[in-house]
């Protein structure tokens, strides 16, 4: 446990700082962004399309809409996805490639090794994700903007659940490879695959990103309970499969 925390410590601090400062930057640059959108060049460009014009109008006037389009529906999700893979990908693969796995696996049961790596990872990752949501809310309040805390909490919640699912995918990949680059590359390929699903109606439900950035929340609806359970279910299946993968692996 102690060791797992030590292994994550530096990355955790760096990612936490990046997450919180990104949230603050998005809040602080709002005026600048709106200024840019209202510039004559942009207005000239968008005046032919009433749809775009209405979106730009909403972004300029409605802070909640701005928050969703610039943070909770965009950068936040991207950071969560990238951080999930950065935190998880080397978890096991580094122990395999550096052969330190013999130090731990000969002294702990496979379950102890597996659960300590996973649980510390979940905690560290969740703290980073939650602080991205809460940090944004606090920054917005301090800057004098009004945001509904319930909306922020909904997005933070779905992003945490979805993020944990992505984290677990990264953990599983980390078990499969003996070098640290492959899980990273395959993880990104899987993200691209998941993103592409949003363009095909039949497999649209696989798009975890749209679950994380639920636009229904924008219209006053709560978190999609069914999707949450599905995400948690898939998370659990990957966790269990990962355990059996590790338990019967030749080290």
């Amino acid at each position: 446990m102690k060791k797992e925390w030590k292994m994550l410590q530096i990355r955790f601090i760096v990612l936490l700082v990046v997450m919180i400062s990104s949230a603050v930057v998005v809040v602080l640059t709002r005026n600048f962004a709106i200024g840019a959108l209202n510039s004559p060049e942009i207005q000239q460009y968008i005046k032919n399309s009433s749809k775009i014009a209405s979106i730009v109008g909403k972004i300029s006037t409605n802070f909640t809409y701005y928050s969703f389009s610039q943070w909770f529906g965009k950068s936040y999700i991207q950071l969560v996805a990238i951080f999930a893979i950065i935190l998880s990908s080397s978890s096991f693969s580094k122990e395999f490639s550096k052969k330190t796995i013999y130090l731990i696996a000969s002294r702990m049961t496979r379950w102890q090794v597996y659960i300590s790596k996973n649980s510390i990872g979940w905690i560290a990752f969740s703290i980073i994700v939650i602080s991205g949501g809460i940090g944004y809310l606090i920054a917005a309040q301090l800057a004098g903007y009004h945001l509904q805390p319930s909306q922020v909490l909904s997005w933070t919640f779905t992003s945490t659940i979805g993020g944990l699912l992505l984290y677990q995918i990264g953990m599983y990949l980390s078990l499969l490879f003996k070098d640290q680059m492959k899980p990273l590359v395959v993880g990104i390929a899987i993200y691209i695959g998941l993103y592409i699903t949003s363009f095909v109606r039949e497999i649209k439900f696989l798009n975890v990103f749209s679950y994380m950035a639920q636009d229904e929340v924008l219209f006053g609806k709560g978190v999609n309970i069914f999707s949450t359970f599905v995400a948690l279910g898939i998370f659990a299946v990957i966790f269990v499969c990962g355990y059996f993968q590790f338990k019967f692996k030749d080290l």
Binding site: K6, K99, T100, Y102, L103, R107
Partner: peptide, 10 residues
């Protein structure tokens, strides 16, 4: 207690 071939620590 095991001392493996590669003496790899952190």
């Amino acid at each position: 207690s095991f001392v493996p071939e590669g003496k790899n620590l952190y």
